[in-house]
Design a protein around this nucleic acid. Structure first.
Length: 424
RNA sequence: GUGGCUGUAGCUCAGCUGGUUAGAGCGUCGGUCUGUGGAACCGAAGGUCGCGGGUUCGUAUCCCGUCAGCCACCCCA
């Protein structure tokens, strides 16, 4: 056992039937994003480390201790992508997309963070996300939330809740920050050790504290809406109006602050109680300053990232997985001659776009039928010695248990007859 | 990085305070069964009891370490 090589910690293999659930979700995501006019972007799995240091923020946990960083043979520091937004913005700059007006892109793929695994958290996980650039208008914020919300709705996930907040911009956030410091500092000795650490680092995160002893101070803390500048206040009000127009149910939650440095104004999460402590399945917001910090032009942008693993956990908890329906034809040959007859027929059936399965062992009919069940086949095409002498094949509907006979003809003709019969 | 719980067959688990050849269900394979199946019955295969060390006459069982899984903190999707 000790010599057996296993998947690295915090990673997992995806095998049937789970892989089918992923494919189904991915198909929905592609269709959904494209319905909103988003085009897919794929970027390298690794990037220059500097991109994340500048894009995500030097003092974030992601950059400080969670990145898979290595030196390549050319002596360059490279990092496995820990999030998608910075690479997407880098690519947009590199291909001058931002100079061509507003852009809508979506992505789906793995990210890597060196963390201790637990419920809903892995070292390799997968995210679907969108980035909408070039619009300062709050309609863009609402649109992005709408994409995520539509996905949740399409699975009928009643447990999901959309929480939104505004954390201000360069003008008003520093003022709020000062107010928070003034509020917490006098009581610093009474706060939890975590809270004491956060005060200097990111006072906004204090609002998110789960510690019992911090609760009274959090409750009495000044609220961000009293500090928003006029522009931010108007933006937030307009966003709320837009969400109402779109019929999207949301709640305002002042504790949504988000951990990445680049967020401005709008932040939001979609939460679910099905997820344990990691209750956010989707997180996003506006990041008007990011492109500039990467050396690009001032560009407003808004987007989100949604965790595929967490989303699928929600789907599973809600029991929203539709039952697999029977499809395809099990080609059952009894004997070598029958097998030679059926092999090209199965091939032709597949060419006509219908799944065809075949088992190559010498088995009894009943054993073959069991295999057909396991494969989820809807029909069995049976040829044994009787059929060979009679010049017929039996096509059995596995659901209704009825037989019909088809003339044994050229593979192409027989396959066409099978496909026609099963199409009904 | 910190803390708690758990590692026995492909899966889910039993195995009480250490005592002869480690069990069950499901699954797999075969048989009853050359012909309307998903079942039933019978049988078989499948285990260095995560790994390493220690204690002991003797350890799946006790102790230490290590790795992994789960959960929580931190943080985030």
């Amino acid at each position: 056992m000790s010599s057996k090589i296993t998947a690295p910690r915090g990673t997992q293999d995806l095998i049937p039937p789970d892989s089918a659930r992923w494919q189904e979700l991915e198909a929905r995501i592609h269709a959904l994003a494209q319905r909103f006019g988003y085009g897919e972007i794929r970027t390298p799995l690794f990037e220059a480390t500097e991109l994340f240091v500048r894009g995500v923020g030097e003092t974030t946990d992601i950059v400080e201790k969670e990145m898979y960083t290595f030196t390549d043979k050319g002596g360059r520091s490279m990092t496995l992508r820990p999030e998608w937004t910075a690479p997407v913005m880098r690519a947009m700059l590199e291909h001058s997309l931002l100079a061509q007006g507003p852009q809508r892109l979506y992505y789906i793929g793995p990210i890597f963070r060196y963390e201790r695994p637990q419920q809903g958290r892995y070292r390799q996980s997968h995210q679907f996300g969108v980035e909408c650039t070039g619009y300062e208008a709050p309609e863009a914020d609402a649109e992005v939330m709408s994409v995520a919300w539509e996905l949740v709705q399409s699975y009928g996930l009643r447990d999901a809740a959309l929480k939104v907040n505004s954390i201000g911009d360069d003008v008003c956030r520093p003022r709020y920050r000062e107010a928070l410091l003034a509020h917490f500092r006098p009581n610093i000795a009474l706060l939890s050790s975590d809270a004491q650490r956060r005060i200097e680092r990111n006072p906004l995160r204090l609002l998110d504290s789960k510690e019992e002893r911090d609760a009274p101070y959090v409750a009495s803390a000044p609220r961000i809406e009293e500090f928003l500048c006029d522009a931010c206040r108007e933006h937030f009000a307009a966003l709320r109006a837009d969400l109402d127009l779109l019929g999207i149910a949301y709640t305002i939650d002042p504790r949504i602050v988000r951990g990445l440095d680049y967020y401005t104004r709008t932040v939001f999460e979609i939460q679910s109680s099905a997820l344990g402590a990691q209750n956010a399945v989707c997180g996003g917001g506006r990041y008007d300053g990011l492109v500039r910090s990467l050396g690009g032009p001032d560009t407003p942008a808004v987007g989100f990232a949604l965790g595929i693993e967490r989303f699928l956990t929600m789907v599973e908890t809600a029991g929203a997985t539709p039952a697999r329906k029977r499809d395809g034809v099990q080609a059952i040959a009894l004997g070598a001659q029958a097998r030679a007859t059926l092999l090209p027929v199965a091939a032709e059936i597949r060419r006509l776009g219908v799944p065809a399965f075949m088992d190559y062992e010498e088995r009894k009919l009943l054993a073959h039928l069991k295999i057909a069940d396991r494969n989820g086949a809807r029909f069995a095409l049976i040829i044994g010695s009787e059929e060979l002498t009679a010049g017929q094949a039996v096509l059995r509907d596995l659901t209704s248990r009825t037989d019909r006979r088809l003339a044994l003809e050229e593979p192409r003709v027989l396959a066409a007859a099978v496909v026609e019969a099963q199409a009904v």
